[in-house]
Amino acid sequence: VLKALERTRQLDIPDEKTMPVLMKLLEEAGGNWSYIKLDNYTALVDAIYSVED
């Protein structure tokens, strides 16, 4: 979780936006981090930006 938060902080995305999206992605992935961690957490960042749209 810390590495995911560090990555999104680099992009000026607050933890308050990151955590709900991260928890949803983890739930959808059955707790499997490998998809979320791919390409420096690209799936997480993309999911956060899609929620903002």
Rank of each mutant, 00 (worst) to 15 (best):
Y41R: 00
A47K: 08
V51P: 07
I48T: 02
K24H: 08
L44P: 00
L25Y: 02
N32Q: 08
T42C: 08
K24A: 10
A4T: 04
V21Y: 05
A4G: 03
W33G: 00
E27K: 11
W33Q: 00
L5R: 01
Y49I: 10
D39F: 09
E16L: 07
T8L: 09
G30H: 12
D15W: 05
R7Y: 12
A29L: 12
V21T: 06
T8A: 07
D53M: 14
K3R: 11
S34L: 11
N40T: 03
S50A: 15
V45L: 13
Y49V: 09
A4L: 04
D39Y: 09
K37R: 13
V1P: 04
S50N: 12
D15R: 03
D53C: 15
R7F: 13
E6Q: 12
Y49N: 11
S50R: 15
L38S: 11
W33V: 00
I36G: 01
E6Y: 09
L22M: 04
E6C: 11
D46T: 14
K17I: 15
L38V: 10
R9F: 04
P14I: 05
A29Q: 13
P20G: 09
K3S: 11
Y49A: 10
Q10K: 10
K37S: 15
L11G: 03
P20Q: 11
K17M: 11
I13T: 02
M23C: 10
N32F: 06
D39K: 09
K3F: 04
N40Q: 07
T18N: 01
S34C: 10
E16S: 12
A4N: 03
Y35M: 13
Y41P: 00
R9E: 02
P14D: 07
Y41W: 12
E27F: 10
T18W: 04
I48Y: 03
E27M: 11
L2G: 11
L11E: 07
T42S: 15
D39E: 09
V1Y: 12
W33Y: 03
L5D: 02
V51C: 10
T42D: 08
K3Q: 15
P20S: 11
M19K: 05
D15S: 04
Y41S: 00
V1T: 08
L26F: 05
A43V: 11
D15F: 06
S34Q: 13
V51I: 14
M23I: 10
N32M: 07
E6K: 08
E27W: 11
V45R: 04
D53W: 12
T42A: 15
I13R: 03
Y49E: 07
V51H: 11
E28N: 09
Y41G: 01
L5H: 02
P20A: 11
P14K: 07
M19N: 02
N40R: 07
L5C: 07
D12Y: 10
P14F: 05
V45E: 01
V21I: 13
S34W: 15
I48A: 03
N32Y: 06
R9I: 02
E27Y: 11
L2T: 13
S34F: 14
Q10A: 13
A29W: 15
V45M: 07
Q10Y: 09
K24R: 15
D12Q: 14
T8V: 05
V1C: 14
N32G: 06
N32V: 08
P20R: 12
L22C: 01
M19P: 01
E52P: 11
V51R: 11
L26G: 00
W33E: 00
I48F: 04
D46Q: 15
E52D: 13
G30K: 12
D12H: 14
I36D: 01
L5F: 05
L11S: 04
V1N: 04
M19A: 02
G31M: 08
K37D: 08
T42Q: 15
S34T: 15
M23Y: 09
Y41Q: 01
Y35D: 09
I36R: 00
K24E: 04
L44Q: 01
E6A: 11
E16D: 11
T42K: 15
S50V: 09
P20W: 11
D12C: 15
Q10C: 09
E52F: 13
E27S: 11
D46I: 13
R7W: 10
E28T: 09
K17W: 09
R7P: 03
K24F: 07
I13H: 02
Q10G: 10
Y35N: 12
A47T: 06
L38P: 06
L26P: 00
K37P: 06
K3M: 11
R9P: 02
V21Q: 03
R7Q: 06
Y49Q: 11
G30C: 11
L2P: 08
K24G: 06
R7E: 04
A43N: 09
E28W: 09
S50G: 12
S50Y: 10
D46V: 12
L26H: 00
L44H: 01
D46G: 08
L11T: 02
E27I: 11
R7H: 08
T42F: 13
L11M: 08
T18M: 07
Q10M: 13
I48M: 06
G31Y: 13
T8W: 06
M19V: 09
L5I: 04
T18Y: 03
E27G: 09
K24Y: 07
R7S: 05
L26W: 05
V1M: 12
D53N: 14
V21G: 00
L2W: 08
S34Y: 15
N32L: 07
D53T: 14
L44W: 03
D39Q: 09
E28S: 10
R9L: 05
V21A: 07
L22T: 00
L22H: 01
D46S: 13
E6M: 12
I36W: 03
E28V: 09
K17F: 08
E16Y: 13
I13Y: 04
P14T: 06
K3G: 13
D12K: 14
D46H: 14
L25A: 01
